[in-house]
Design a protein around this nucleic acid. Sequence first.
DNA 1: TCTGGGGTCCTCACACCA
DNA 2: TCTGTGGTGTGAGGACCC
Length: 422
Amino acid sequence: MSRAPRAVLARRDWGSDESGTSILHVDMDAFFASVELVRRPALRGLPVIVGGGPRGVVLASTYEARAFGVHSAMPMATAIRACPQAVVIPPTHGIYHEVSRGVMDLLGSVTALVEQVSIDEAFLDVSGARRRMGPPTVIAEHIRTQVRSRFGVTCSVGVAASKLVAKLGSSHAKPDGMMLVPKAATVDFMRALPVGALWGVGERTEQVLARWGVRTVAELADLDVTTLQQIVGKAHGAHLHDLAWGRDPRPVSPGHQEKSIGAEETFDTDVADADVVETKTLELADRCAARLRRAGVVGRTVSIKVRTSDFRTLNRSHTLVTPTDVGREVFLVARALLAGVDLRGLPVRLVGVRVEGLSRADVTACQPTLEEAVAGPGRRDAERAVDEVRARFGRSAIGPGAVLAVGKQDRSTTTFAPVELS
DNA sequence: TCTGGGGTCCTCACACCA
DNA sequence: TCTGTGGTGTGAGGACCC
C-alpha cells in the first residue's frame, strides 16, 4: 500500500546488471481489495473500495477505482463522491492477516533474511539464496508466480542494492511487475524522482523544500548538506542527503521488536459525556494490556491521545516506577491523564491508549499491583484467565465491566474525575 | 457530512543532578 | 554558597509511514 510518488521518467529499463543487487522489496498490489476480489470474483473489473464506517477512510481500492482519483487514506465520503458507482466493502482484517501470514511464510522459504515492514510488504536479502535459486530477478519472478498461484493476488518486486531503492523499484513496477535497478544506475534512478519519493519527506517537508525551490531528488542532492540541515533539521537533513545519493546502508533485519503497543478509536459521533469516554478508555486499556500479554512484554509508560471535535490532538503520558501488562493499571493511569486534559469544553472525537517503553515480561521484574499487594496476585491472574476465555470463545465472550466504580459520578459534560498519579 | 488506526522517530522544553 | 554547564530522563507534540 505504498503511497510514494512515482515518476514517469523512472519507469523504464535501467539495465540488467544484477551484481550487488541482493535486496528485494515485495509489495502486494492493492492488497485488501485484491483479497476481497479473490473472495468475490464477480467484482473483478469493477471499481471496489475497501473501507467504511461513518467517519472512515479508504483502506484500499482497486486500480479501476483509482482511475477516478480514489486513493488510500481518502475520506470515504470524498471517495464515494469521486466514484459513486464503486462497490464499497467493509474490511475483514482477519482474512488479510491470514493471507499475509501465508505470503510471509512463502518469503521465509526463499531466505531467512525477511523483514516484514507491514501487513503487505517485506524486504528480503537474497545474497545467500543466489546459489540455490539463481540471480535476484529469477528469485523475484519465482516469488511473484508463487504468490499469484497460491493466493490469487499479485505483487510487485523491486530489486536493488539497498532497501530504499528496492522499495522505490517495487512502487515503480506496480501493478504486477518487477523492476531491477542496477547498482551503477542507483544515482541516476534517484535523480529522476520527485523529492516526496524519499522516506521521511511527507506533505509538510515537501512544502518546506518547495519554498527553497527543491522539488526533485536531484535538486535536493545538489543542495549543500549544511543548508539542507538548516531547512529541515540536523539529523533529518543529513539523512535525506544520504538517501538522495542512494546511500542507505541499513541491513535487512528480521525479528522486529515492537516499541509500543496501543489502541485508539474514533467515535461515530463526537462524545460530550465523560462516562462514555472513560468506558471506551477502559475497553482500550484492556485491549492494549491483552496485546502486551500476548506479545509477552510489559511497558513502563502509559500515554493517552485525545482528539477533540475541532480536530485538535492532545497527548499525555506518565511513566510508572515498574512496568505493567495489567489492564486495570493501564486504565487507572489513562484515566488520571484524561482528568488532566483541558478539552476547552469540546466533545471528544477520538480517544487512544498506548503503552511504551516495552521490555520482555520474562526478564522484567514487575512490582505487584496495588490490589495484589493487599489481596494477593489476583488481578494479573484474573486478566490472564480472561485471555484464555477469549482465546477459546472469541473476543466478545468476556470483557471488562462498566467503568470501574472508583470516582464514578453523574456527568453530562467532558470533565473527568481527578485521579492521583503515583 | 472531510480527515482511521497502528506504529516510529525526532525535536523541543523542562527538571534534576553532578 | 552561587552560578554555569552538560548529561539524562520525561513529557508533549509534530511529522511521517503503511
